[in-house]
Nucleic acid binder design. Structure first.
Length: 857
RNA sequence: GCUCGGGUGGCGGAAUAGGUAGACGCGCAGGACUUAAAAUCCUGUUUUCAGUAAUGAGAGUACGGGUUCGAUUCCCGUCCCGAGCACCA
């Protein structure tokens, strides 16, 4: 036992003790309530952790320890999101196998995490690159492949039920979410070849082969991930990147669009993240309306959210990428249109972004506005996107910015049909009037209606007349699931001689060794060169691998039963541990991991594997810790602070406490090396409550009311603060308590022992050490959280601020039981009050019990 | 451009069912202990004016209004900063 606070010794000793006794190892225990606290597992990068990384880990560790002390059975695991690009890029440069560098990095991460004293159950560690893990990622993919989405039942169902429907009824009333198939009868279906059947089923499988747009870098001969493209140029080398169509696997996330929006209402996430997800899904309500192409039998179908403006539609615009573009174009003008379409197709991302001026060509044809019967010209322009809505719009230049700019550029007519409620429009328009509140005019039967009413009226008319119907569109796209890379999960898919994909029945399909990690140059993954792996008895293997988010979309389920080799987790484990109660991590995953995890959870819920359909009940996004210079912490700026160094100099408890003290968890804030001294001094003072110089000084003397009051106000404050994750103010509560007890020279066990338990979640090592020095044999981390007793906090009098006309002029002490009249009499006779009233009559006397007195004259 | 956050001392930040603004910490200044330093402890620290001082008076939570006995907190408008989306019809 040392009289000095020697954190190095203490922290090493207790970390070893906790590991040896498996203190944080957790098992299913139906006699206790469960709590599941999870950190977003890290990608084990080569540069290790900086002080920003543990911020969220410390917060979740405090909550985990707090819940454990409150009798919960706490699942608090950690693992590694271990597949990904950086390891592969490093392999390309050095030839080192990604599994080797990944293992090295994981070892380093584990060391760093251990130094900080987290209460992880390391027996539950998962690694997404481990075949024992990814065999289940492959199995879940297989489930997606074998299911379709039933729109009327609003859930995923086995493909066999859809096949049965086709076999019995053909394509009629199939209710499946997915592609546009031509109609067929039951007999047709029975006569279809395997390839024909595959082509149809592929349009409904939840994992399916899709034409998707990828980032193609011609100079490097490879497909690039979004994070490798910066401002339309490749991150390495700065070569131009274009969009290219490519066949690859996708997941049909759009089937879940509405449920992904609806589910947000049932979870405790920040409004910011909910808003980001809502915008990303981008649900918009409107109508699809058919416009007849003049002089033909063809129609152009448009999507609009503003059918109220249809009397102002003065032209149509078709996206240049539209497949049947030629049909909407006169023969004479086709060459010009085709030239424009080709140019648009090859336009690089950087051009598109730099240039927002409107370009386009006339197709030579006209469409008939069904409401006015007037012919309007059909144009082609790249400001209309082929993959949103129908790829065709009705342009209303008077009420849409983009249409207005286009009309100006090509001198097309502009007809206003909506005006503000109280004023007239100034004509001619100098910009579009796109506000969604206004009154219709120039619009036949819609005249005088508000925008809202007119939208409804127009849709009703469209549906009655058979020109179209109400329609909901989403910005959300199907999730591209293939990567032309090596370091990822192989697909459990082979293709037979006719090119039909089949599931492999032996899992895992393991990633083979390759000679080179370089991309093949033709857009295929390095796996395509491994011919004895590609060619199997069952057929040719898929050579793409899964994206980084495959393994991370379900890892929180695996922690409940990490070593199960039969199923991804047992029913029993899933039933006990259920949802993640608290999820802590960065907000940068809002439209990636956090959306995909919700999607996979809903899918597994539909299939009955789990009994809840939202993975993370409560989400907290920790802020970033900036460098001392206020910039983002990065090697590039030379402002990185390593937690190992901080722990070596000040100790892990000080690092933990200081990170919490910096400010609200969710805020971004700069690191300040000076500031840590304050926390370090706090631990010195705290230690000296137990030691008087060289001597152990804790006494068993009975505590005074004043001392008990300090303890109980701290219990109350710290408990409430942990519940609301307001850790910075609980740190200050500890400092206040320590200062006050120090002033009173209070060294009483009755006070200090409960105080240690309060401190244990924040500073587990020093708390454990002093706890044992007090003579306790069991760990402090399995003690009982102290309960605060309100009777110690009851005040019987209050020192009221007395204000005259809102300005504080005096202080007066009154019993809380004093009546208003008593107080009023005393206050009005107070000399300062008489002075400030200046003889004016009393207008009003306000007393807020226990708060304030205000005299109004 | 649209959406969502947010503006409080030299700095990080406290305090919002409306009720003494600046808790706690850093930094800074002064002091005690010491031969000296480290460590520790004590005092002061929003700002302006008056006073040797205790103290007193005024201003003050981005800016301008409003509601109220009373506004950092609620409402309206403006400015600034940050984040997300971005030709989504």
């Amino acid at each position: 036992m040392s009289a000095q606070y020697s954190f190095t010794e203490i922290e090493k000793k207790w970390q070893a003790a906790w590991e040896n006794s498996k203190l944080y190892s957790v098992q299913i225990d139906p006699s206790k309530p469960k709590y599941y606290a999870l950190d977003m597992f890290p990608y084990p990068s080569g540069s290790g952790l900086h002080v920003g990384h543990p911020l969220g880990y410390i917060a979740s560790d405090i909550v985990s320890r707090y819940k454990r002390l409150n009798g919960f059975n706490v699942l608090h695991p950690m693992g590694y999101d271990a597949f990904g690009l950086p390891a592969e890029q490093y392999a390309i440069q050095t030839g080192q196998h990604p599994s080797v560098t990944t293992e090295q990095n994981i070892k380093r991460f584990r060391e760093q995490l251990n130094i900080m004293g987290f209460s992880y159950d390391w027996d539950r560690q998962v690694k997404t690159c481990d075949p024992n893990y990814y065999q289940f990622t492959q199995r879940i993919f297989a489930l997606f492949f074998n299911h379709w989405y039933n729109k009327s039942a609003q859930k995923a169902e086995p493909l066999s039920t859809l096949e049965a429907h086709f076999s019995a009824n053909g394509s009629a009333d199939h209710n499946a979410h997915g592609g546009k198939i031509t109609e067929f009868s039951a007999q047709d279906w029975q006569g279809f070849s395997p390839v024909q059947k595959h082509n149809i089923l592929n349009q409904f499988r939840l994992a399916f082969i899709d034409e998707t747009t990828v980032n193609w870098c011609e100079a490097m001969g490879t497909v690039l991930a979004n994070e490798e493209v910066i401002n339309g140029l490749s991150e390495r080398g700065g070569y131009p990147v274009i969009r290219k169509k490519m066949k690859q696997w996708s997941l049909r996330i759009t089937a879940y669009a509405d449920r992904l929006i609806e589910g947000l209402e049932r979870i405790q996430w920040s409004d910011a993240i909910k808003e980001i997800q809502k915008n990303w899904i981008g649900r918009s309500q409107g109508a699809e309306i058919d416009f007849v192409v003049r002089g033909t039998l063809k129609t152009l179908k448009v999507f609009t959210t503003r059918p109220d403006t249809i009397f102002g539609a003065t032209f149509m615009v078709v996206a240049p990428e539209l497949e049947n573009l030629k049909e909407y174009c006169s023969d004479a003008l086709w060459p010009a249109v085709q030239e424009y379409a080709n140019k648009a197709k090859n336009r690089s991302e950087i051009d598109r972004m730099a240039d927002t001026t409107k370009t386009g060509v006339f197709t030579g044809l006209e469409a008939i506005n069904p409401f006015t019967g007037e012919p309007i010209p059909i144009w082609v322009s790249d400001y209309v996107l082929a993959n949103y809505g129908t790829g065709v719009i009705m342009a209303v230049p008077a009420h849409d910015d983009r249409d207005f700019a286009f009309a100006k550029a090509f001198n097309l007519s502009i007809i206003p049909v909506i005006k503000p409620a109280n004023t007239e429009l100034e004509l001619p328009l100098t910009e579009s009037f796109s506000a969604k509140d206004g009154i219709c005019f120039n619009s036949g039967f819609l005249d005088g209606l508000t925008v809202k009413e007119a939208i409804q009226a127009a849709i009703t008319k469209v549906e009655k007349a058979g020109w179209g119907q109400a329609k909901v569109n989403y910005k959300l796209r199907e999730a591209g699931f293939g990567r032309q890379r090596y370091w990822g999960e192989p697909f459990p898919i082979t293709y037979d001689s006719q090119g039909i994909p089949q599931l492999e029945n032996q899992l895992p399909v393991e990633l083979p060794q390759v000679e080179s990690y370089k991309p093949s140059g033709n857009g295929e993954s390095p796996l395509s060169a491994v011919s004895d792996w590609v060619n199997t008895a069952q057929g040719k293997r898929e050579t793409d691998t899964m994206p980084g988010w495959a393994g991370s979309s379900w890892y929180f389920l695996r922690y409940t039963d990490p070593n199960n080799s039969e199923v991804f987790a047992s029913k029993e484990a899933l039933q006990y541990w259920q949802q993640v109660d608290l999820y802590v991590g960065g907000s940068e995953h809002a439209t990636g991991h956090l959306l995909y995890s919700r999607f996979w959870t809903k899918f597994l819920f539909d299939l009955g594997y789990i009994s809840w359909d939202e993975p993370f009940k409560r989400l907290v996004n920790q802020g970033m810790i900036m460098g001392e210079d206020g910039q983002k912490m990065s090697k590039r700026w030379g402002n990185v602070v390593n937690p190992d160094d901080v722990c070596a100099q000040y100790g892990a408890d000080t690092l933990r406490m200081y990170e919490m003290f910096l400010g609200p968890l969710t805020d971004s804030k700069p690191w300040n090396t000076n500031g840590i001294e304050g926390v370090s001094r706090f631990f010195g003072k705290f230690w000296r409550l137990f030691y008087d110089g060289e001597n152990w000084a804790v006494s068993t003397e009975k505590a005074s009311n004043e001392e008990l009051k300090i303890l109980h106000k701290t219990i109350k404050k710290v408990t409430e603060d942990i519940e609301s994750m307001s850790f910075n103010t609980s740190v200050s509560a500890f400092m206040v308590a320590t200062n006050e007890l120090g002033t009173l020279k209070c060294r009483k066990r009755e006070i200090l022992e409960p105080l240690l338990i309060l401190l244990a979640p924040f500073a587990p090592h020093i708390a454990e050490e002093l706890w044992h020095q007090l003579g306790n044999k069991e760990s402090i981390h399995i003690a009982n959280w102290p309960q605060y007793n309100a009777s110690f906090l009851v005040e019987n009098s209050f020192n009221y601020p007395i204000s005259i006309n809102g300005k504080t002029r005096a202080q007066m002490e009154f019993e809380l039981t004093a009546s208003e009249d008593e107080i009023k009499q005393a206050v009005l006779n107070h000399e300062m009050v008489i002075k400030w009233m200046e003889g004016k009559p009393l207008k009003k006397f306000i007393l807020v019990k226990g708060r304030i007195v205000n005299v109004v004259v």
